[in-house]
């Protein structure tokens, strides 16, 4: 099936009010993502500043982060970005069942990433080199940034769950699905933030 026009209603017309309102919401949502990006950037600045304030990195007595596990866990999150992309594509083309499956896959992968992060936290906090939030600048920057990102993933998972319920209830139609677009934007944003965090914490 082909892509329906935005704002198309059941009678073949176009709901002009919806088209314009959607335009406003889209722009507002993108600006929200920009300001959220600034929030992350500020903390990333803080991390890089502390990292370069002397004494080497990681600070004495702290174990290096395990890159193998993080790479695997990142791939889980990046995979969820790909499935979310195809969820939206399928919805646009009217393939509702496929959309639902991709959406569920996204939720599972997102939750899987959170589980992996919990596993890693568990290891860092209760492993042989105890590192926690307040124990030094390493813990401060690492747990604040990844924790903030984890919270974003968690909110994203909740949002997508709501999307599943709403879609099942038939809230979104062929021409009116801004909630799904916004969800996809948000989920991609969370993924892309993780690309940066993964690079600066595990690869740098």
């Amino acid at each position: 099936m082909s892509v329906a026009a935005i704002g198309a209603d059941a009678h073949g017309g176009v709901d002009q009010l919806y088209v314009e309102t959607r335009e406003l919401r889209l722009q507002g949502f993108l600006l929200f993502l920009v300001s959220d990006c600034v929030l992350f950037s500020s903390f990333i600045f803080a991390y890089l500043y502390l990292r370069n304030s002397g004494q080497g990195w990681p600070p004495p007595g702290i174990q290096r982060l395990d890159v193998a596990f993080a790479a695997w866990n990142s791939v889980v999150l990046f995979g969820s970005g790909a499935t979310m992309h195809y969820a939206l594509e399928n919805f646009k083309h009217g393939k509702f069942i496929k959309y639902m499956w991709f959406l569920l896959a996204t939720i599972v992968l997102g939750a899987g990433f959170l589980g992996g992060q919990a596993f890693e936290y568990n290891h860092l906090i209760f492993g042989e080199h105890v590192t926690w939030w307040g124990s030094g600048i390493f813990g401060a920057s690492f747990f604040t940034l990844t924790g903030m990102h984890g919270l974003h993933v968690f909110f994203g998972v909740c949002y997508l769950t709501v999307l599943v319920l709403q879609s099942a209830a038939g809230v979104y139609t062929r021409g009116k699905y801004f909630g799904i677009t916004a969800g996809t934007l948000y989920w991609h944003f969370v993924d892309v933030i993780w690309v940066v965090l993964f690079s600066i914490f595990y690869l740098l």
Partner: peptide
């Protein structure tokens, strides 16, 4: 990001 994770792997 996927390429980075692949290279890290």
């Amino acid at each position: 990001g996927a390429v980075l994770a692949l290279l890290a792997g």
